[in-house]
Simulated scan of single mutants.
Amino acid sequence: MNANLLELQGVHTHIGAYHILHGVDLAVPRGQLTMLLGRNGAGKTTTLRTIMGLWRASQGRIGFGDQDITTTDTPQIAGLGIAYVPENMGVFADLTVRENMLLAARKAKHAGQMDEKRLQWIFSLFPAVEKFWNHPAGKLSGGQKQMLAVSRAIVEPRELLIVDEPSKGLAPAIINNMIDAFAQLKASGVTILLVEQNINFARRLGDTVAVMDNGVVVHSGPMQQLAEDEELQRTLLGLAL
Rank of each mutant, 00 (worst) to 15 (best):
R30H: 01
H19T: 01
A17T: 15
H19V: 00
G16I: 07
L48K: 00
L48P: 02
P29M: 09
L8C: 12
L48Q: 00
G10Y: 07
H22W: 12
L8V: 04
K44A: 04
L33I: 15
L6G: 07
H22F: 09
R30V: 08
T13E: 00
Q32H: 14
G10S: 10
V11C: 04
H12F: 14
H12R: 04
M35G: 11
L21F: 08
T13G: 01
H22Y: 11
G41F: 02
L8H: 04
A27G: 03
K44N: 02
G23L: 14
I20E: 03
V24P: 11
T34H: 14
L37T: 08
A27Y: 09
Q9N: 13
P29E: 08
V11N: 08
R30P: 00
L5V: 14
T46W: 11
N4T: 14
A27H: 14
D25P: 13
L37N: 07
L6H: 03
Q9R: 12
L6P: 10
L6R: 05
H14I: 02
L37W: 10
H19M: 00
L8N: 04
Y18R: 15
A27N: 11
A17I: 06
Q9F: 12
V11F: 10
I20M: 05
P29R: 13
G38D: 03
I20C: 05
D25F: 10
L6F: 11
L26W: 12
L36W: 02
T13V: 13
H12W: 15
M35D: 07
A17M: 09
A17N: 15
L48C: 01
D25I: 10
R30F: 02
G38N: 07
G16K: 09
A42K: 07
G43V: 10
H14W: 11
N4I: 11
G10C: 01
L26F: 09
G43A: 05
N40T: 05
K44T: 07
H19G: 00
T47D: 03
Q9W: 00
K44R: 06
H12C: 04
H14M: 04
I20W: 06
G38A: 06
R39N: 07
Q32K: 15
I20Y: 06
T45G: 09
M35W: 04
G10V: 03
T46K: 14
V24T: 00
G41Q: 10
L26Y: 05
G31D: 12
K44F: 07
G16R: 07
G23D: 13
L6K: 00
T47W: 02
N40Y: 06
D25V: 09
R30A: 04
I15W: 04
H14G: 00
G38Q: 06
E7S: 13
H12E: 14
G38S: 07
